[in-house]
Write a protein that binds this DNA or RNA. Structure first.
Lengths: 177, 177, 177, 177
DNA sequence: AATGAATGAGTTTTCATTCAT
DNA sequence: TATGAATGAAAACTCATTCAT
């Protein structure tokens, strides 16, 4: 529902109808409509957080890490496009991100640490701020997701692969000394 | 109002109060609350569209064009931060972008044309898709704006300059052959 | 405006626009929108009141009086159809007739007196209540006007003549001893 | 509520209060305030339509049919005076009859057919147009209802009987050859 | 006489949420 | 678990009316 109509335009009744239950029942499982969104966010984003950690911990050359990160991130479009819709449109920049900023930050910080580590290994230019670089890389990925969500960019399986390569190529070459 | 509380949380009465008039008067000048947002979008985005065109037409090396583009785009944060807030949070990815997708697309297409032209001049790698590259570059910029809007990234004058340099460096090096 | 859209659906601005002036000017000539309706009523109805009095005073056989009454009443459709629209739809039975009931009553009482007088001359059945009869006659006329107003009955010039004859014939024969 | 204050002056809250529920509940059962009126109309008018058909089908001399019609019609004043108020004041001639004109027309056409049939049996004058005659008869009835609704005419039980007799006498004698 | 910006009371309608069953 | 009638706060929007100019 949220993916299709957006959070505000989706009525609790719509959600319940989609689920095939009476709307009252929704309140057995969620405290509020907001909590439904919250749940979608946590379930979707949680995966990305965990994967990001795993990538960070597993080490390896930056290029490889970036590739795995981009794969997870952009690849989720093929697995759960509706969740990505909600993430992109309702969460990432909503005026209510407030409460979620920490969990989102976790991914950013992980990415920044990877870049910082790579920098200390000499894989990244000395004049490059890892934090800013993390935002640049993340922004590239999110924008491409947005293009898919809005139907502005073709988002079939091989488009996803091409997008991964493009982002990784640009980011890697862009950061390299 | 929209910058501070978001579109949905802003009541028409709030807007009118901020403007120091009765809420009824708002309907002399705008057909609806939605149209107020629409107007903010057009006035803010229009500038970017025009500037993008100008940059495209003036030619020059890609690096220079990217720098000017990033300056305009990120620089607007220092000039009209509230308009940027609204752009980032209420417009770029709202479920109602629908009607505005064309005007937004104009900037993307301009950027893509610049990259394509540079590619034909040999300034860009042969295996690089200008359209995807445009999304990558644009995403980098918008994400940084988002960081500022959400207060996650310091956005003072010299931060802006650094951001411009970072994005331009990464993009240029990332796209170069 | 009232004839076309009805009192409630007509905005003061519509009326002013139709008149080719700014809506503020309306309040130089009328105290309120309601007073515009009031004025239409008085100007239209006043004629009928006067004519009814004249018919009553001039005497003559009932049939002749009925004919003149029906002519005035139904004939006004050809002269001022819009005023009749307003009369039929906005005034005669509106929940606000309250204040106008007296002026409307004047016509009814005149008609009833004519019938009573005719009865005393032996032109009307002895078991006939002149007041009820007046309502019957008046109702016949108003219903036909209504038919024209609603476009349910053809209301061209000769239809009006036929209607006059029909009502007069039925009423006269219906009341005669 | 509508009978007492009229459609426009009745607020949704009034109706709900009268019904002893919260105003929001009204929208569970009706799509809008307008639909409440619509429902009253259908429920009230439907009875008259059915009865009119029955009278038409049962045949018999015109005088008898007119009497039954008048009884149903005027008699409803004693049974559901409030519904009649609404019918007379809010529906019969409102600027929005538009959508109801067909259902109202059904009664008119039935009445006209009865008169036409009587004419073919020689019970009605040859120069009488059944359609116009139907409007005349119907108008007589509705005007008397209006008199009761507006409190201009006494509407007790025996007044109703007298009114029936008066209308039937006038109509029958008025139409007879 | 004329304008139209400005006012703000008033009204319908929506919809998340509750809760008796 | 499950229902859906019931609630009522909230909000957008309308429009008659005023009044400075």
């Amino acid at each position: 529902m949220f993916a299709r109509k957006g959070f505000h335009a989706s009525r609790v009744g719509d959600i319940a109808e989609e689920a095939g239950v009476a709307h009252g029942l929704l309140y057995h499982y969620f405290r509020s409509k907001e909590e439904v969104l919250e749940t979608i966010f946590r379930e979707t984003w949680g995966v990305l957080v965990v994967e990001t950690q795993r990538i960070e911990e597993s080490g390896g050359p930056l290029r490889e890490q970036l590739r795995r990160f981009a794969c997870i991130y952009l690849g989720s479009w093929l697995i759960t496009p509706e969740a990505i819709c909600v993430l992109v449109r309702e969460i990432a920049r909503s005026p209510d991100v407030g409460g979620r900023v920490d969990e989102i930050g976790a991914v950013f910080r992980g990415l920044a640490r990877m870049i910082a580590a790579a920098k200390s290994r000499g894989e990244v230019r000395a004049d490059c701020d890892p934090v800013l670089a993390a935002w640049v890389v993340y922004g590239s990925l999110e924008e491409i997701l947005t293009g898919w969500v809005l139907g502005q960019l073709p988002g079939e399986e091989d488009d996803v692969e091409r997008a991964v390569s493009t982002v990784v190529d640009v980011a890697h070459a862009g950061l390299a000394p």
